[in-house]
Every structure is written in structure tokens, then in C-alpha cells.
Amino acid sequence: MPAPHHPPRLAVALDAPRHPLRPDAAHYTALARLAERGTLDFVTLGDRFGGPGPDALGLLARIAPATERIGLVPAVTTTHTEPFHVSTALATLDWVSRGRAGWTVEVSTTAAEAALTGRRPAAPPAEVWPEAGEVADAAGRLWDSWEDGAEIRDRATGRFVDRDKLHPIDFTGRTFAVRGPSIVPRPPQGRPVTVVDATGAESTGGPGERARREVAAARADVALVRAEDPQTAGAARAALRDRARAHGRDPGRLLVLASLPVELESPADAAGLADLLTDWYAQGAADGFHLRPADPVRDLARLVEGTVPPLRERGLLRRSYEGTTLRAHLGLPRPAGIYAATPEAAR
């Protein structure tokens, strides 16, 4: 199996179990700017359908204009929401951030969440994860439903768009159908980056766990795996890449990031983290890391002060951003749409 060759991707969560989301734009703007100073690839914000707390996608849209390069990846739930709205909201996040949007696909399995909508009973992970995969599929098709170049503004014929480049998606899933095309033009990245937490917070094994992993293998651009040691992470990466291949995908297009809890109580911890990331990466454990600070304010500051500089010195982290989009940071090409007549060269 090829070892990763692009420098490790680096992402950080802005929320933590003891620091749940709150409706405070200044707080998250400051954190995202800090992550941007550290030239990380993206920040994540967790979310649940039932909150409590603000809508994570809305919150990252709110801070998008106050940041320039950092990728913005909210969790978006797919169980009690409309796939069409999920798709248009993410396309819009990509537009307002000029190509920095992604999303972590999430589901809702609790009775409390189901009671907030009252439309369908709670269902276990093994049922809602396949649906989440379908939502991701439909969202991707909606993003592609406007081919690049659909807008022509042709004065001679009076046509604003070339409607041959607008496509119904006619998607029929197990629980929903979407006709399309989208009402939002194709977003700057073509498709915002799809992230799937392939292991989940409470690893229980079983069919739900498998369903989640399958969505990661089939649909994700970035999969997160929670692992305690580099061997476990490397094995999870290999397994995901195998499954991606089985789904007919180029495994090189699936980045597997080890998702690690971090607690930087001292500057020495920050330097130690740099050593640990260097070591895991050298062992081929992952394509990069998603760090989950226990205390985002404290830990992110320590990370930028004490972990980022040694990584830069070792050539494992950029000193400044070269690209402007999240895909560019991650080294993922802008995909040609599935409806594009002649697939354009990856930009």
C-alpha cells in the first residue's frame, strides 16, 4: 500500500464535549483565525439535530467573511432534514467562503431528536447511515446539476443559461426522492468536501458501525478514524481504502485522517504533539490528523505556538497557503461534474 506523500493534512475541532457550541460569532471567529494563522487545512464544528446550540453551518457562514483561507466544515445531519436544503445550504457556504466549504455527514438516532420533528420514529444507525449515504449522493448530484459554464448571458439569443447544461437528477432513495436540478449554481469547488467520521464517538461495533464505514468508503473525500495508536489507525486506513476500491473509487481520492483528542496543558505538550504527529505520519498511519482539543481556546493557542513551528521546520506543514480553496489545501482536484459532456481536466 502506498504511504502518504502529500504533507499531512491538519484539521482541528472548534467544539469540545465540555465546550459545546454557543451562539457567539466573535468567539469562533477568533478561533478560526488562530487556526488560519497556523495554516491548518480546516476547522470542524460538531452539531446535532436537537442542538442545544446554534446551527453549525449557519455559524461557519457567519465567520466565513472574517477569514480568508481556512476550510470550514460543519456537521450537517441528514435524518430529519431535507436533502435538497442540505445541498443548497452547503453550496451557499461554498459561495460565501469562496470555495472553503465542507461538511461532516451526520445522522440522528435518538428518540429525543425524532420527537422534535414528529415526522418519523427514531431509527438505529444501521438504518439511518445508508440513508445518509444517499443524501450525500443526492447532494453531490445536485451540485453537479449545473454544469460549469451553464451561465452564458448570450445577448444574441436572449438566453441567460444554456439549459442543456442544467440537469434533473431524478434521484430516488429508500426514503426520499429529489427531482432537481439545484436552484444554486455549481459551487466554486464543484463539490464541497465531504467528510465522514468513520468510527463515530461511541464505537460499539455492529451493523451501525459498518454502515457508517461504508458511507465513508463510498462517499467521503476525507474520512476520520479515531485510533489510540498508529498501527490501529494505519489498519483502519488500509481497510477504508480497500472498501473505497471495492466501490470503484481511486483510493488516492479518499484521505484518511486520524482523529485524536488533544490536551495541551503546557508548551511541552505542544512540542510533544508535534513529535507524535511526525512519528505517526512517518509510520504511514494516516494522511493527516484531525485534532480534538479538550479546551479549544487554550489548546488551539498552544498548538499554533508550539506544535505548528516544529512541523513547519520539518517540512510537514506549509508556511503559507498556496491555494485558496479547501480542495486545494487538501490536494484534492476540483471534480468534473457527472453530467459534464467532456470531463474537463482536473483544475
Binding site: W146, D162, I183, V184
Partner: peptide, 16 residues
């Protein structure tokens, strides 16, 4: 196809 077409999702763009 004759009119301006395509717009963002409202709540997201207003947050920005």
C-alpha cells in the same frame, strides 16, 4: 432560460 437564474440559500447567505 431567458431570466437570471440561480441564487443562494437565503439563511446561509444572511449569516455571512
Amino acid at each position: 432560460d431567458l431570466d437570471v437564474l440561480g441564487r443562494p440559500e437565503s439563511v446561509t447567505v444572511l449569516n455571512a
